[in-house]
Structures are given as structure tokens and as C-alpha cells.
Design a binder for these strands. Structure first.
Lengths: 211, 211
DNA sequence: CACCGATACGGGAAATTTCCCGTATCGGTG
DNA sequence: CACCGATACGGGAAATTTCCCGTATCGGTG
């Protein structure tokens, strides 16, 4: 019997063609396809299908890969989750692993590696992309200084990545300039930067704000 | 006889699976696959193959989509070029069209639309993604204020998207602070921003600097 | 209830950014 | 050769950012 696989990816072309590729591996059946986490939730509930393996894109509208992985690992703990992404942004990899993914594959992976990965996940339960250049040591290091950013700070970050002055931001957030100043100082420390430009860049790099 | 197609995309998974999808349309033969423009150049020269249609990803390392499209339209003017991208960044679309692409498709396009597009391109020579939300009016408007950015300015932009102060940037570029100041002022005008943060954001948004 | 951490805010100085005023050189071009 | 646009640079003021000093409130928690 073939192994059932689900795919969630907002790029339809990739979603469908990856499905074709999985089928070409002969041993997999694509039983669910969705464009984002929300759609996946609905399809899983409706169809009562539970694939053994789920390939999850990280960047998706409506409901992103991290939320999706969290939901799946809570709702279907036996399901093997595989994160699929284009950028090898460290903090995102960590988040996906934390959210319950047992493997992280880049989209520049060779199909053969995908096949090998899926096979190992199915048999051994995990897969380490040793061939890829993911540096686990660096990962753990960055994890150590992975920091908790409050909702208010995140909100401020959005404004900080803007042409607005701090005074304008304060007005927009209905807060005093001094309060804003506190957020800034706190974030400078957390993200290890020294200027607003550095802050904005780091925020984008970490995916804390969407451009 | 089947129509010959080439694909250039740095994401191997996408490259290969898209190839499978094209084959599944029955009337296309994928004759060349490359991970970037440079590799494509070599493969085309070596094999002496000239596909009728070339699908070109915009974001690629080594040699990106714009350069690749320019080279192809000069070297193989009869080849139909199709830009393939994930973001619908206006200025990039314009650049790809200018570089000789006769169509621009997003990766979130549905496979049916891709099939339709390829068919139209093959028969009529062009394709307009009317179903997609590309707003041509907006495109032309942004084109009007598309501005020429000099190499020096681009170099400065890289530094501006950094934690460095202008003084440090000046030192790093072996120029006076005043000269740097001129670049800044010029770019503020060209990109219509009023602060360094705004400049940095716009630079990233337009793909002028890579994060 | 005393203490603490999170949150909000004020005053002010130093550094940096932004914007204005100029000048000088240099390679075309009419 | 006079003129012009591109490039490089200097001086200085105003605005903004960055960083320091505080204080006050409030919801837990020992």
C-alpha cells in the first residue's frame, strides 16, 4: 500500500507539480493539497483523511507554516511533518522544528534527496539533511539568543520599518515618545543592533515584519 | 512534434517537478534544465539545443532572471521567454518584460493557467495574465517613476541597509562624508523617501539590495 | 502588605541624520 | 574654449535618533 502524503503550499504551480513528482516516486499518494493552513484544516476536517506525511511550506498567506505545523502536531501527533522552504533563515528553521517538524528541506534540494528524505522519515521517523548546508551548531547558537518579542514590540517594529519619525509613531500608537523609546531600546538589545536601520533590517531578516 | 521547452530555476525541487508537469501536458518536451543563467548559457552552448520556449525564474544566484532574459533575447531572439516569479513586485515585472519576456507568470498560478499561457504563447506569441491581478495601469505608472540608479549609488545602498553610521560608510567607501551625503540626497529623491529607514525599506522592496 | 517585573512616561544631553549653503575637478560637446 | 553635467567635498544649522537620568501605576506573589 502506498504512503499517503499531504502538501500545503501557496504556490499552486509548485503544489501541483510537487504532487506529480511525489507520484512519480511510485510509493506515495497525494491525498490532500491546500494553499494555506486554514484551507488544510478545512479539507482535513471535511474529508476525514489523515496523511502519514505532510509537506508544509513556511511562507503562506492566511495561516503560515509555523501555525500550521503547531496545529497539526497537536491535532494529529502521529503525522510526520516536513518543513519546506526557500530561505534557510535560521530562526525560521528552529521555529518549524519546534512546531513539530521532523525534517527541514530547502526548495533547492534535489529530487533524489527529497525521495531519500521521505523514505527515511517513513521508516526511521526523522531525517537530517546532512547533505544540505544547514549548520546545526550555528542553529543552536542562534537559538540560545532567540528572544521573546512582545506583541507591543512587534507592533512597534512594523512602524519602525517605515519612513515615519518616532514622534509620528508615538502618535500613531497613542503612546508617549518615551514609551516608544523604551520599546526601541529593548529591541536594540534583543536583536543586537545599534540603529533603527539595523533594527529594521534584522526584523525583516527574522521575518518579524512583512514588507 | 512536441514543443521544446527549457527551464531555469535555482530551486531544484521546483525545476524538476515543473518539468514533470510540463511533460504531463503531453505536448511539451523539456530539453534544457538549469539552476541559473550561467549554467543555462553553458548548457545551451554545449548541446546546441534551442528550445522554443524558455521559462525563467527571476530570483537566482550567480546570474539572475533579468540578466538571463537579456542574454537570451540577444542570443536567441526567436525564443519565447516566460518570466516566472513568486513576488509580484512591479518593478521586477517591468524589468523582465523589458528584458524580452513575452509573459510574466506568478508561481501561485494554477497549472491550467500555465498550460493555457504556454499554448497561447506558442500560437499567438504572447500571453496576458488577465486572470491574475497584475495591474498594468499601476505598472505603467510605476514605470514612469522608475529611476536610474548609478552603480555608486547602488553600492552606497548596500551600506545604507546596515547598522553603520554615515561616517563609517564614508570610511568604508573611501569617500568623504559629504559625498556620501550627496548619494543619500539623490536616492531620497529618486525613491521618494525622507529617511534612511525608508530608503532601506524601499531598496529591499525594489530588490536593489539583497538582504 | 512589601516586593518585583512589566508598562508608561518625563527631562535633557550627545550623536547622528538631514538639509542647506557653497567650491573644485574633469570629461565631453557645441 | 566656454559651458555643462557628473562627481567629490567642506561648513554649519535644524531635526531626529540614541542614550542617560529618573518617577508612577498595576497586577501578581511570597
Amino acid at each position: 500500500m502506498k504512503t499517503s502524503v499531504g502538501i500545503v503550499d501557496d504556490h499552486q504551480l509548485f503544489l501541483k507539480s510537487l504532487g506529480l513528482m511525489l507520484k512519480s516516486f511510485q510509493v506515495y499518494d497525494v491525498v490532500v493539497e491546500a494553499l494555506n493552513g486554514k484551507e488544510l484544516q478545512e479539507k482535513l476536517k471535511e474529508s476525514q483523511i489523515t496523511p502519514s506525511i505532510m509537506l508544509i511550506d513556511v511562507n503562506m498567506p492566511v495561516m503560515n507554516g509555523i501555525e500550521t505545523a503547531k496545529w497539526l502536531s497537536k491535532k494529529h501527533p502521529q503525522m510526520k511533518l516536513v518543513a519546506l522552504s526557500m530561505n534557510d533563515n535560521d530562526s525560521v528553521i528552529i521555529d518549524m522544528i519546534k512546531a513539530g517538524c521532523c525534517a527541514y528541506l530547502l526548495k533547492e534540494t534535489h529530487p533524489d534527496e527529497l525521495e531519500k528524505a521521505l523514505h527515511e522519515i517513513h521508516t526511521k521517523g526523522f531525517y537530517n539533511a546532512d547533505a544540505s548546508n544547514i549548520n546545526y551548531r550555528r542553529l543552536l547558537l542562534t537559538d540560545k539568543d532567540a528572544v521573546a518579542i512582545t506583541d507591543k514590540e512587534k507592533n512597534f517594529l512594523q512602524y519602525a520599518c517605515t519612513d515615519m519619525t518616532y514622534k509620528e509613531i508615538a502618535t500613531a500608537m497613542f503612546l508617549s515618545e518615551r514609551t516608544i523609546d523604551g520599546y526601541r531600546e529593548s529591541l536594540f538589545g534583543k536583536l543586537k543592533v545599534q540603529s533603527r536601520v539595523g533594527l529594521a533590517m534584522e526584523a525583516i531578516r527574522r521575518g518579524l515584519v512583512t514588507l
